[in-house]
Structure formats: C-alpha cells, structure tokens
Write a protein that binds this DNA or RNA. Structure first.
Lengths: 411, 411
DNA sequence: AGGCTTTTGTTCACGCCTAGAGCATAAGCT
DNA sequence: AGCTTATGCTCTAGGCGTGAACAAAAGCCT
C-alpha cells in the first residue's frame, strides 16, 4: 500500500483503508468496531463514512443483535455501488459473475466452449458486454496458464500461444484510468482468494498448490501471491521436483507437474491424457485406483519438501485434486515429504491443509484482483469523477482531478 | 513501509522518507534534488532538514560544481549522528565495521577464530563492547547459516546447533526499544546489500545466489530478500536441483548445494571437504581444474533454470565463487541452463550477472539491516529521546514518548 | 413506568501538517 | 554592474485528525 505524504492524500488513504476493511470483513463489522480496528477517532469515522455514502460507495444498515448503548450501523455495499465482474475460463467452459463490495457473488452465466482461444473468449466477451454498466469498475479473468503482464497467455496443453485475451474479448469498453481488464493465472488468483478469505488469511508466508490437469503453485507473501518479472508466477509445477524425467509440454523436462496432476493420474493407469480432456475419467481414477493416487501423493510430497526447505512457509494449502490426494493418500504424502526436509524444518514442519474455497477460488481471486485495483486513492477518485450522478457524463471531464479543476476555476 | 494515518504521523513519516533518501543515495544528492525526488514543497523540505539537523541526524555541506542560481547544500551524515555496527562472521574469521548514515564503512577489526560458537562470538562481543557509544543504534551480524527469528543459528557443516548468538556475544548493552542485535544469514544480507547498492537496485524480482563452501540463494522482491515464516530464507541450496543424490549435512538428500560450492569443487578432485576448511585449496581448484569448474557451473545452470521457471526473475546475480564460475565456465552454465527453461522463459531469459559488491556484500547487508530498523518513525523517536544532549541520560525517561510527556504536563 | 447506565454518533475548537506564493539570497552570465 | 536563474526562507491558507463535550438511543434496574 502506498503511503500518504500530504494531508490531502491522508484523507484519500483513510477512505481506502475504511473501504478495504469493509470489503475484507465481508461487510460484517459495525461502524464502531471498524473505528476501533482502524484506530480512528469517532469523529473521523463519521466524516469518512458520510463521504463514502455520498459517493455511492457505502450504505449503512442497522446492526442486528446489539446488547446495550446506542445502536450502531453496519456499513456495507451501496445499492448503486461499484461492481467487479469476474470470469473463470476453464479448459472446457467459462463462468461469469458479478461481485459487489464485500465479496457477495452472483453468477451471471456459465457456458461450455470448444477450447480454442476464439471460441472461448468471443462468447465470454459478448456476455461481459451484456452486463456492462456504469457500476462496473473492472473485469478479472482467471485462466489456466501463464499470463504475461501485457495480457498475452500461453496454455501449452491447449495449444494457446501468445493469445491476446483483452483483444479477443472484443470489448468496446474504455472507462478512464488503466486497463480495466485484468487477466491472471488461475492458481495465482486462487491463492489470492485464499489469502483474503480462505485458509491463508493473515499468513505471512504461505504456499498454495493447485492440482488440476497440471500442477500450479505459488508463494503467498503478506497476503499477496508473488508475481514474476514478466507476469504472475505460479509456475512451481515446472521445477524438476517430482523425481521424473519426462519431457513436458512447456519445453523443459522432469517437471513436477508431470507427476502430480490429472494427466499423471490418467497416464499411470494407461489412459490417454493431455489436451484438457478426461476430467471425468480422472475423477474415476482418483476414486478407484489407490496406486495412481499414492504415486501422485508421493510426488506431491517430495516437491512440497523441497519448497518448504527453500521458503519455510507457515502453511501449505492444496486445492483442486490436491484435496483428494491429501484425503485419500495423506500418509503417503507426508511419508515422502518428511525425509526430504532439512532437519531444522522437521522440528516444526508447516501444516499441509486443504484450501478453504474449493473450485470457486479462482473466480473469487479474479474478483479480488479487480477490487485491489479499485480500492486505491486513484481508483476511488476515478469513481467519484465518473458518476457524481447517473447522467453527468460530460466527455473530457474525466481525467480532470479535483485540484486541476480548482486551479482552473481560480484562474 | 507502514503508512501514516494521522497528520502527526505525517511529519514522522516524511522525516523517515527524507533520511532514507539520503541514505540510499549515499549522501550524493543535493537538497533541491531531494525536494524534487520526494515531491515536497521547498518550504516543507526546509522545515524537515532543519529539524533533522537539530536532532543530529543530518548535516549539510555546500554542494560542489553547481552551474547557476543560488547554491544548494548536500545533506549528509551528522558528525555526531547514528552509527550502525556490522559484523561478518565467516567460517574462519570475523570482521567488524562501523557505518554512518549514507553507508560509509570503516572497518574496526578483523580477527581469525577457531570455528566454535564460543570462540568466534566471545571475541566479537568484546570488540563490539569496545566500540559501543551512545551513537551506536544497532549491531547487525551476518552468519553463514540459517537464522531463526529468535536469533538461534544452525550451521550444519561447522557443527553449530541452535547457537544463541545474542547471548554468546555477551553484550551488556540495553538501549531502549527492540533488540538492537540483528542476526541474519549472510546470503540474505548480501542480497539486501545488492538490492540497495548493487546490481539488484530497482529490481522488482531478482534472484541472488551466493556460492561459498555451500550454496545460498534467495529471492529479492521489491528490494527485500524474502524471509520465511521462522526466519530468513536463503535456502535454495537445499532444493534437489543439481541432479545429484548425495546425503547433505542438512538432513535431506540431493541438495543443489552439494553440487555447486567449494565443497563440491574439492570433492570433484578428490580432496577432503567439509567443516569450513580448505578455502585456499578450493581457489586452486577454481584456477587449475577446468573440469571441476565446469561441473559446478553446469549444476549451477540447471538449478538456475528451475528457479527461473518458477519465479521469473529479471536478473540473477552471483556472488562468492559464483563469479568465478560465471567467468571461467559461463558457456557451460548457460548451455545447461537453457534446455531446462520453459519455452516461454527462453524468449526473454533473465540476465545472469556477477553481483556488484563482492565479498563485502554480507557486511554491507548487515549494515543495511540495522538502518532498516532505525529509519522508522519509532527508531527516530528513540534517537531523539536517547540523546537530546550528550548527557541527558535520566533513567526512566526513555520509554516516555512525546505525547505521554505532554499528557503528563497537562494534568 | 421512569430514571440510570452504557455505548455510539455528532459537532466543534484546536493543533499539526503541507502547499504555495512572495520575497530574499547567492551565485553565473552578459 | 545589472540581469538571469535556481534555491532557501517565511508566512498565510486550507485540509486533516483528535479529543472533549454534548446529544441520542437503546438496555437495565428499581
């Protein structure tokens, strides 16, 4: 979080803090609790809440079940407040949802697609257009592949090469400010959601592993998944930690993900694998082939040990098929993990747990990424300018900040 | 950096920003440049500098070589300003230095030791005591092993087990505030120094690898080496990335560091290794045995590829013997690195470079860690209280903040 | 039912902070 | 010597959070 240096930025900063607190607690805390949480004076909180309510960002409702004293209110999302659109594009279908401040999600549409970039993204783009309104402050898209900062995506096992996601979505949507379409890797976004509303909440250093066809993994540091230089990381699956030496579609050999995901399960029982097909069969293997499951769990454990040695996380969370591996072969997992740990890590090894949010995590993470961009002094300022009323859409008035406005008037 | 939320904290915050800027530029920038860098009004800068000068934190000297206009001054360390002590404890000797704001280092003492915790730390503690004064705001100690947050250190190959460094130093030094003795891993501290004054300056995601007897490695994110949950990380050397399967003193097997450091070089030519002995011989091997060097470089390259796949750093910096490996077998290094990269990483692979600060980096990092703790609102407030004058050492007056003082007066 | 207690919201005077304008200063340049 | 340029200093204006006093709205007690 960037910090204020002038008294003017102070106010903006505290507006963000308050809104962030409301969002992070899912609009469950009362105004007086928030005032204490943020170490504000009651008067300051009054002014802040009033201002945010006037800007259609917050709306207070009476709090239920108080015991004594003057009743307090619970600030929550404004009925005309900002909305984040979030999409999860999986190998065979996509899902689109709208989320308000506080994180309440309403699913808008779910549609299967043919696995091609055009097939998947054109229909999604259309659905997004249908739901655009002045209230929408951004779109977050979760994808099962590495995403570069410029929005280009590669999904090796689907044959996506340098796919320009924002372009293929074909949105004619140009609000003020930076690009409102945020594309992210599903594992990284799932980790973000876990960090905000799941098992990694409050964890300073965590490791999140998502097992699907492939294996994705990422460090979560201070509540944020670690990005690489050119884009979100989440590529632990492509380190040689599984003990194998198979060539991987990524171009390297011996990738950990080759030994752990659904593709590995299918391969282990001699079924066809790759290309994002076979989800149902993979689940049969999970349920019916203990050997394949154990092999996957052991490879998972070995790799976890290596990552724990290097990064010393407090918690390791598993999502996707990782949950099943942990439940059905947890002992094999820990048995292969332990001996590969450094002695000093063995004394207090990290907990290995199922993630809290399940398969919905990537979608929630996409939502969080939109609000992360919005809940900043700049984001709130844009919101203020964009819609003082329903119809004040004077072109050219958008990129004018309050201070420039004042300067103009004074001249 | 924590951010201000009240107008009072604003001033403290800006004092820190200004001091930090002076420190980070090594006291080379003029006041007017700093004013622009930090986006301050000239008047604000005036007040800040005057205040800091009065608190014996800054001292202005005329700037050399200006062209036109009123001459400006260069704020630098105050002659009676804070000092950071920094020590680098290596396998066979330690070095103690004093550093002023801006980073100027003067070496105070260098002494060989016998490699035992007591032998190394008692003599160092004595030397530190000899140089303590009211100006000293902290001691940073760099050590060649994993350090837990509680100060306990293990150095497997020297036989150090849960060594309580602060206790063995035996300092009777209790200034106000949190523990003034900061113990850190040498690789992590070297990475910190590179991030502040070396090749990792301004890099958002970097990877620093330090090759000594063992191999240490750590990610540098936004100018800070990544810590683990229980202490500084820097343990990439204990991931199974080198391709071997030897048992390691750490308790695991196949550790990367087994294939890369001085110990690996010695082993490769059939010499005794381990225990922190054989530095001279290792350098002979480096100079005279291209085969051993190439083997080390190849193992280094393989591991770098795995880490680049996972973390996508902008730069990889090498220090210690890593520099020699790069210079003498750079081709072997990159040849073994490239094929192990994911295809998408091959397009724009990170630069692999020698670190800028050489063997001095750990000591500089220890210094930076002390100033990181000092250059905070709390650190500066303590400094203000500790020495309004040379002799105002009233016991009990230490933990009284200005606001409590004021409150007391008003009652 | 009426008064008391408890907790919270509101208002306002106050102190602190930075911005910015105007003026003073100290050089280089013509 | 006078002009230009860049910087430092001083002072006023405006914004912000604090904290105390007061008002409000409930539950609790007699």
């Amino acid at each position: 979080m960037k910090s204020a240096t002038t008294s003017g930025e102070l106010r903006a900063h505290n507006r963000v803090r308050l809104l962030r607190a409301v969002h992070d607690c899912a609009a469950t805390r009362t105004r007086s609790q928030l005032t204490r949480d943020l170490n504000l004076a009651r008067g300051t909180a009054s002014v802040l809440v009033a201002g945010l309510a006037e800007d259609r960002l917050l709306h207070e409702e009476p709090a239920a079940g108080h015991t004594r004293g003057r009743p307090t209110q619970v600030p929550g999302p404004h009925p005309l407040g900002p909305l984040a659109l979030a999409a999860d594009v999986r190998e065979d279908a996509w899902e689109l949802a709208a989320c308000e401040l506080g994180g309440r999600v309403s699913v808008l549409e779910v549609q299967p697609h043919d696995g091609t970039p055009e097939g998947a993204l054109a229909s999604l783009g259309q659905a997004v257009s249908d739901h655009l309104s002045r209230r929408v402050v951004g779109l977050g898209v979760a994808l099962a592949g590495p995403v570069r900062h410029d929005g280009l995506v590669d999904i090796a096992h689907l044959g996506w090469r340098s796919v320009d996601v924002p372009r293929l979505l074909g949105l004619a949507w140009r609000p003020a400010g930076p690009d409102p379409v945020l594309v992210g890797n599903d594992t990284g976004l799932a980790a973000l959601a876990e960090a905000r509303r799941g098992r990694l909440r409050g964890v300073r250093m965590g490791l999140h592993l998502h097992v699907d066809f492939d294996l994705g993994g990422v460090l979560v540091v201070d509540g944020r998944p670690l990005d690489g230089a050119s884009g979100p990381g989440a590529e632990f699956g492509h380190m040689p930690l599984g003990g194998g030496d198979r060539p991987c579609a990524c171009g390297a050999t011996g990738c950990w993900g080759q030994e752990v995901g659904a593709n590995a399960l299918l391969r282990h029982v001699g079924l066809a694998h790759g290309g994002g097909r076979g989800r149902a069969q993979a689940e049969e293997v999970l349920a019916g082939s203990p050997e394949a499951v154990e092999a996957g769990a052991r490879a998972l454990g070995r790799g976890i040990a290596a990552l724990v040695n290097a990064h010393d996380p407090e918690v390791v969370t598993l999502s996707g098929h990782g949950v099943a591996l942990l439940e059905r072969a947890g002992e094999a997992l820990t048995d292969s993990c332990r001996p590969a740990l450094m002695a000093i890590r063995r004394e207090r090894p990290p907990r290995i747990e199922a993630a809290a949010l399940g398969w919905r995590a990537a979608l929630l993470g996409a939502m969080e990424s939109v609000f992360d961009a919005f809940l900043t002094p700049e984001g709130l300022e844009r919101w203020r300018e964009t819609g003082p009323d329903q119809g004040a859409d004077t072109p050219g008035s958008r990129n004018v900040t309050h201070s420039t406005l004042k300067r103009k008037i004074l001249q």
